[in-house]
Write a protein that binds this DNA or RNA. Structure first.
Ligand code: SF4
Ligand code: SF4
Lengths: 167, 167
DNA sequence: TGCAATTGGGATTAATAGGTCTTAATTACT
DNA sequence: AGTAATTAAGACCTATTAATCCCAATTGCA
């Protein structure tokens, strides 16, 4: 099960970080992004269209087309992307699944959950793509060398290890 | 989309809190629990079997049967329940969906995510059912009076407002 | 103008999670 | 023993999400 973000949203975050990191040569082809991040082409396609509709990306068709961030990465927050793809559920939903959330008459876990949620919201509201893409560089290189031996990508070609160097 | 916990896990947490609150008259019938919490009977049935298999509940068949917590509520942590139903995904999964997580060579969001996760883990590891069931009492009463007018349960009978009094 | 390279969008399929129903097994009481 | 009450378990259906496929629309360039 996805955790916090839907699969599409995970893809969107990854792709946005990728665009931020490579903004010097934008626009970038969908093909390159999906290949680099091991995201199914058509799935990412939908997600990118969605981000574009929400004004976070600019898309150009035809030759020399591709996708680019619509604003400087320092002006795009993680919450912008999450909100565009997953809506406001993450921001409003009760952790126990009840219809609404509030501070009056909190349920047994509400105070704990509020604290945890604050921490999540801090992550989403106070980090921009520029900061976060800083240390992406060395990773991409590392990954190239890891691809063949890490995570058994040959027998399991769908493993996505791109940004991830822990394994 | 569920958030943090699967639906079954949400049900399990609700049911466990309910059992903790009413432990003076255990065992309690599945029927009562599912009715009180507006959880589909057979769905909760599966979930309770699962908790029983994991040693968190004791189940008695036949007349005067029902479910009871296997230990004193103060000795059951939220994480026990989450772990039994959802496994360790929540505890190990990367928020961006990559296969493994680690602190060496963290990806762009890893540090932020670690902080948020700590806060969630604190909620799951340091709160026991006894503490949390304390203020459940007044809520259950409140709910009885709210049922008819709150959340339009007549036209939408599946709304579960039991523990929730915010709306 | 015509062609090739792209994104856009709809239809379709596959996978997963959630929910319903039926029946079996077990227990307690008479 | 017999019966009713209750959990256990599995088959089945439904809804949601994820993934795939196909073709249309747009753009740049020869
Ligand atoms: S008070 Fe409790 S039940 Fe209500 S929304 Fe907050 S966490 Fe959920
Ligand atoms: S380092 Fe980043 S990519 Fe790797 S597991 Fe942690 S959050 Fe996920």
């Amino acid at each position: 099960m996805p955790l916090l973000f839907s699969k599409s949203c995970e893809y969107a975050l990854q792709a946005a970080l990728f665009l931020a990191r490579h903004r010097d040569r934008s626009p970038i082809l969908l093909r390159e992004i999906s290949d680099s991040l091991y995201i199914p082409y058509h799935v990412l396609s939908k997600t990118m269209q969605n981000l574009a509709k929400n004004g976070l990306l600019i898309s150009n068709k035809g030759m020399n087309g591709g996708f680019a961030l619509s604003r400087h990465p320092s002006e795009i927050l993680l919450k912008d992307i999450v909100h565009a793809i997953d809506g406001d559920e993450l921001f409003t939903r009760c952790v126990l699944g009840f219809p609404k959330c509030g501070d009056r008459n909190p349920c047994p876990v509400h105070n704990q959950w509020t604290k945890a949620k604050d921490s999540i919201l801090e992550m989403l509201y106070e980090r921009n793509l520029d900061e976060l893409s800083q240390n992406l560089d060395t990773k991409i290189n590392l990954i190239e060398t890891l691809k063949e031996r890490c995570c058994d990508t040959k027998s399991n070609p769908n493993l996505r290890i791109d940004l991830h160097t822990c394994c």
